[in-house]
Design a binder for these strands. Structure first.
Lengths: 154, 154
DNA sequence: CTGAAAAGCGTGTATATACTCCCATTCCTG
DNA sequence: CAGGAATGGGAGTATATACACGCTTTTCAG
């Protein structure tokens, strides 16, 4: 229904998968960023550093595939991390590639941020309940893999 | 486990709600934007126009609350729509406010985009199955409302 | 071996997102 | 009713996202 009480042509758009996913993403991102603020890492930056702590040394393209993120997006996301000295970019053996690696400073930032991440993550899991949270993760993973070459985190 | 086979301190970060939600959001947004491209509206823009077709006339702040979007974000998101003449911004009775309304051109763009939205939406619902999709919507709605003043679409 | 195809990356451009300030208007208290 | 508080809103700044394009290096067919 619209403001005049007429039936809307767009009733079903309230169920838009993209809109509702983005909306939840905005809300949750704000929450994580706020909660993790004392650790001085945004949620996205934390995830990138975590991934780097797992893969150790990786090219930009391979890392972007793992993160299901456009390569050029990752390039830009790496910038603030490099500027702060949390990661190091260097030319790979294949001179076309650039490899990304955590610096000691990056490891420290990650360790410092971890407890704050834990706080945020725990709260959302507790709110949804373990079972529903797992089911949500499963659905999200399916959506990611439907539209990309999915790879998994640790 | 990391590349050296050592247990990682960050095992649990693979379940990060924020990361997984954003990842799915990226993937689904790409899919919607591509599928809806012939209609010349991005997913986000489509959602804003749909909302405007429902509320008819709204201030920027109230609209941003409905969309669970920062007011300043909405201000910027409205810009390309106004530039294309799809919406009209005018001073409200309360001279502090600006009201947003669809133009005839905006209604046409919305109508043109609708079938393409339908295509994208149908595919994702079919892939997940009606039941799982509903459950996903419910979880996303809960996340949105946990961290904002939730209002619902049509 | 040479030259075209392919792979890996960065930049330009545009949208999306939100926080911090700051300005205009309205509201409300004394 | 005067003046400070509250509200609505934009601009500055910074991150996040991705497409189109072009550059460099590698690969591979002939």
């Amino acid at each position: 229904m619209n403001a005049k009480g007429n039936p809307s042509k767009f009733e079903r758009c309230g169920e838009c998968a993209c809109f509702n996913l983005r909306k939840a993403s905005r809300a949750l991102t704000r929450f994580f960023d706020k909660t993790m603020q004392p650790g001085e890492l945004r949620g996205t930056q934390f995830s990138i550093l975590v991934m780097l702590s797992v893969v150790e040394l990786e090219t930009v393209t391979r890392l972007s595939e793992t993160l299901v993120m456009d390569r050029t997006t990752l390039t830009r996301n790496l910038r603030p991390l490099a500027k702060r000295g949390l990661i190091h970019l260097s030319q790979g053996e294949d001179k076309r590639t650039r490899t990304v690696a955590l610096t000691p400073l990056g490891r420290k930032a990650l360790a410092d941020a971890y407890p704050h991440w834990e706080t945020a993550q725990s709260l959302i899991v507790r709110r949804l309940g373990r079972k529903r949270f797992q089911s949500l993760l499963h659905d999200l993973s399916e959506i990611s893999s439907l539209f990309s070459g999915e790879k998994s985190m640790p």
